[in-house]
């Protein structure tokens, strides 16, 4: 202890404290602050860069998922539209078909009725014609027959002769 106290030098102590404190403040201003700031900035920069890269990756993934989803939706919509169109077409065709059928049936029915009435008319006419014709024929025949007196007399004789045999 005596040696320690003996070794102590007050002048050196003053110099040391002066220089050291001065050094602390000098270095604080010119070295430590800029160094620590720069290192901090760099670390922050690295951290931010990593974070933004991660974010970009996530965003990219989101975007891709979005794209996928939109594509899926579009595809679905297209399918739906196609389906709808097909259905509509089918329906239209069906409708057209049934209508056409109904129309056809109706026309056929009309035609049938017309034919029937025409036939009836034709029949009636034919009947009328046939009756007039047969009347006229009969008239003519009768006239013919009656004009030939000899034949008539023969016929009458013959008829009379037949009656006697009975």
């Amino acid at each position: 202890m005596d040696k320690l106290i003996n070794d102590f030098s007050f002048g050196l102590f003053i110099w040391q404290v002066l220089i050291f404190v001065g050094l602390i403040f000098l270095l604080k201003k010119f070295a430590w602050k800029p160094i620590l700031d720069a290192v901090n900035d760099r670390e922050e920069g690295i951290k931010n860069a990593l974070l933004s890269a991660e974010n970009a990756k996530k965003e990219m993934q989101n975007l891709q998922a979005d794209n996928q989803r939109i594509l899926q939706e579009a595809r679905l919509e297209r399918d739906n539209m196609l389906k709808e169109a097909r259905e509509m077409k089918d329906k239209m065709v069906d409708d057209a078909k049934t209508e056409a059928q109904a129309q056809g049936q109706k026309m056929i029915d009309q035609a049938k009725a017309a034919i029937e009435s025409e036939k009836n008319a034709a029949m009636a006419e034919l009947k009328l014609q046939v009756s007039t014709l047969s009347l006229s024929i009969a008239e003519k025949l009768l006239k013919e027959e009656l004009s030939n007196k000899e034949a008539q007399t023969k016929l009458v004789e013959k008829l009379l002769g037949d009656v006697k045999l009975n």
Partner: peptide, 20 residues
């Protein structure tokens, strides 16, 4: 010793101000 301290102080200042 004071000379040594001054030298070290100077070296430290040069090195770390340079680094900064």
């Amino acid at each position: 010793s004071v000379f040594g301290i001054l030298t070290v102080a100077l070296v430290m200042f040069l090195v770390f101000a340079g680094l900064a």
